[in-house]
Structure formats: structure tokens, C-alpha cells
């Protein structure tokens, strides 16, 4: 239970960065931290005491494996996170070329 709460604290640090900071790079860093916390929470839910890694060995019968389903879901999520981070960074590079700043309060033309 303490581990779950620590994982939520990590998520909240990322959430604070997204909500409070004005620099665009800090917002991207906050999104990355939230993604790490979410992946870790999935894997924590599937852990089992005295478990073995989910790979069958050749000449012994392993009965106590950890849950492989959250690991399979998180494996695709990590690569998607990298692609989404690269997409956000490309948008940030275009914003920097057009306005010359990363400060989101200085970008007046987005207000409409």
C-alpha cells in the first residue's frame, strides 16, 4: 500500500509541473514523469511475492510466475510514449521558431 501511495506521489509531482510551470520544456518533462509513474503502477499491480520472471525454463517446472499481462501492455505503452514525446517536441520547435520563446504566456496569438 505504501508503494502505491509513493507511486501516486510521483504522479502528482508530474501533475504539478504540467499545471504550474510556464516553460514549454518543463511541461514536456512533467508529461514524461506522469507516464513513468503510470507504467510503474501497472507493473506494481502484477507483482507477486517470490515470483519468477515469466520465461519458461528448459528443465524445471516454474509455478510462481509474476503476472505477464501488465508487462505486455506496458511494453507497447513505453514505445508509444517515446513517439508522442517526439511529436510534442516537434510542435515546440515550430513554436520556438515562430515566437522566439518557450514561455506560454508570451504566445499571444494562440489566444484567438
Amino acid at each position: 500500500m505504501t508503494l502505491y501511495f509513493l507511486c501516486l506521489m510521483l504522479f502528482c509531482v508530474g501533475l504539478y509541473g504540467v499545471l504550474r510551470k510556464r516553460n514549454l520544456v518543463k511541461i514536456i518533462v512533467g508529461l514524461g514523469i506522469m507516464e513513468y509513474a503510470m507504467n510503474l503502477f501497472f507493473v506494481l499491480l502484477g507483482y507477486r511475492f517470490d515470483g519468477r520472471a515469466p520465461i519458461v525454463a528448459r528443465d524445471q517446472n516454474i509455478l510462481n510466475m509474476v503476472d505477464p499481462l501488465p508487462q505486455a501492455l506496458v511494453l507497447t505503452s513505453i514505445v508509444i510514449g517515446l513517439a508522442v514525446t517526439a511529436l510534442i517536441i516537434s510542435i515546440a520547435i515550430r513554436i520556438y521558431e515562430k515566437y522566439g520563446t518557450f514561455d506560454i504566456t508570451k504566445i499571444k496569438k494562440l489566444k484567438g
Binding site: 517515446l82 513517439a83 517526439a86 517536441i89 520547435i93
Partner: peptide, 20 residues
């Protein structure tokens, strides 16, 4: 797919920064 896709992303980021 993953290898060449990520390399294409990196190549695009580098080339555009140089051409500006």
C-alpha cells in the same frame, strides 16, 4: 517498423533544424 520509424523521426528533427 520501430527501428526505421524512430530513425526517421530523428532524421527529420535534425535536418529541419539545420535548414532553417
Amino acid at each position: 517498423k520501430v527501428g526505421v520509424g524512430l530513425f526517421a523521426i530523428f532524421l527529420t528533427l535534425v535536418i529541419v533544424e539545420k535548414s532553417k
